[in-house]
Structures are given as C-alpha cells and as structure tokens.
Design a protein around this nucleic acid. Structure first.
Lengths: 158, 158
DNA sequence: GTATTCAGGACATTTAGTATCCAGGTTATG
DNA sequence: CATAACCTGGATACTAAATGTCCTGAATAC
C-alpha cells in the first residue's frame, strides 16, 4: 500500500482541527517533515476525490470538503491507492481444462470469490471508521492535540 | 499482492485432487500455461513454509504436506507474499508535536490501530477458509473437476 | 503588478515484482 | 554405475510501480 495513505490520513485529522481556515501544502508537509512536492500530489488526489477543497493564491491551501464524520478511512485509501483489490484475479482458469472462454472467472471462480469476500470485510471495516472517530479518540487520549496542532500550523507560517 | 498467490492457491487445490502422488513443477505450470521456472519459485516458498513437501529425482515433484482441511488461504498468502500488513506505519507522529522518541507508534497511533484492525478482519476471514473448503465448493459446482484435473496431469506427462 | 499558492505534466531515482538461466545436489531406473 | 529426471538456490535481467523533484501555467489576495 502506498505510503501516501498514511500521510493523507494524518493530514486529514489535522485539517479537522483547523476547521474554517485553509492550510498550505508546505505547512502540512512541514508538520511531519515530509517532502512538500510529493505530499502535494497526494493532496491533489484527495481534492479530485472530493475529500478536500483547494484554494489557489495567497491565503490559499487545503481544507476538508465535508464534515469529518462523513469521511471514512476507506474514502482515503481509495483516493490515494486506487479502487483495485490487493488480490487481482487473472482468470488462469481460462487456461485450464473445460474452460468457458466467455465466462467471467473474476466473478465465478471460487478462489476469486473467497479473496474478494475477505477484502470486502476489510473495506467494510475501513468504511465504518471516520476521520472524526479517529480525531475523537486522539482527543480522548491526548486532550491537547487539537491546540498543539493549531499552534504548530501557526508556527510553521513561513 | 503477488500474482504467485493466485497460482499457489489453484495449484494447491489441484494437488488436493492428486492425493498420494507427487506432481512436477513442469506439469503444474503446464496446467495453466504458467512460466515453469517462476512457478517453481513459488512452490519452493510453499515448501519452505511447510505447506508442500518436495521430492527430487525421477518420480519426484510436489504434494500437499498435510490435510487440505488444515491449509488455509492465509497460510498461502503469508508463504508467498510475506507476513507484512499492506498498510505499513512509518511512525510519522515521531516528527510531530509532543512526540515521545521512545514510544512505539506502530502500537499506539490511533490510525495505525484502525488499519491494523481492518487487516485483522481480513486475515481472520482468510484463515477461516481452507483449501478443502474451496475444493469442496468447486466439486459441488463442477463434479467432474477432480477427474478432469487428474486426467490433465496424466496427459501432461512430457 | 507582484507574490503566493495550487494544478499537473515531465522527468529521475529507487524498489519490488516478474521472469530466465545455470550449477549443484538428489533419486529412480536400467 | 551411469544416466536422466527433478528439486534447490543463487545470479542476473527486465519491467512496472512507488517515490521524489522540477518547472510551467493558472488563480487569487494584497
């Protein structure tokens, strides 16, 4: 899995605490000492996916496009890593005995179904966790986190 | 995910129908028109993992090392693809504010925990499905499959 | 108008996946 | 014993994907 998924999730949690004002890619990158230009690519992907909104120019930057309760971890994984399953069925049964050339073995192969079923439980789990859930749990453990985050953004003004 | 996982799973199902006699890598590869030398590498990995046993020399080949009811899809994924999770936590929180340099953020980071939890459900699902389950379901849908498989192995004698 | 910032294409670099080949060891068979 | 079939594992090559940088162009606050 793309490392950008981790960056994107942490950035979205931080953005949930910067509600109201846009944060530049430069400051989001400086927060965790990440390469600015590359993080910017991930932020662009989140924007294309409708998870973030972006504003150009001075005072510009990124912010969450909707309520963090309505942004799931799965949304972020799909935006950064793409919609494909980890297990890719190449329909090798088509090369086996008694194969039907017109059949779609990605659908009817028992192994393919089992793997897809497992990935479905994985995705269902990720879909059930929102950025707000994560942020709330962080606050429960570390109440100062939102203030710390806002302060750090402010101090990374450059 | 490594494409060899798909090859290995289909090969194990086929081997469950060849019970008693070893099948060579060449015939296992010819079954689905796969590159012999590369499939052989995956079979070696399955052997190292204790899923297959191998015999050298004429009449040699591979067979299941244990009852197919006791070989899970997860066993095969781990043998071929390795034990690592898809999501790899790089502990970027160590670069953030208020970080504890001695803390293990792969354990305590809320995002890392959520991702790990989702992968756990995935693995649990794969662990609950055995090669025998898969083979039984194939037989239920296509009763001739075991005979077809044995015949094909016999005809690929070369 | 100028400085700041996002958008996105064009590279360059590194790493992982996909193969191929060969030399060496094992074993059935005549 | 000689031979051929077969697995083992290292070396190597090729390809694709992930990672990272750079630059031009467009939008916007001041």
């Amino acid at each position: 899995m793309n490392e950008g998924v981790e960056w994107a999730m942490h950035s979205c949690v931080n953005l949930s605490w910067a509600a109201g004002e846009a944060v530049t890619a430069k400051r989001l990158a400086a927060f965790y000492n990440l390469p600015t230009a590359y993080l910017n690519k991930q932020l662009q992907a989140l924007t294309r996916a409708g998870i973030l909104t972006s504003v150009s120019g001075p005072k510009g930057g990124f912010q969450l496009a909707r309520d963090p309760r309505n942004i799931s971890l799965l949304d972020i994984v799909v935006a950064i890593d793409g919609p494909d399953d980890a297990f890719r069925c190449t329909e090798i049964l088509k090369e086996g005995p008694g194969a039907d050339a017109r059949a779609d073995y990605t659908k009817i192969c028992v192994i393919s179904q089992a793997m897809r079923g497992a990935e479905l439980t994985y995705r269902r789990e990720l879909a059930s966790r929102s950025i707000a859930d994560i942020a709330d749990e962080v606050v429960r453990r570390t109440p100062a986190a939102p203030d710390d985050t806002r302060n750090r953004f402010a101090n990374l003004k450059s």
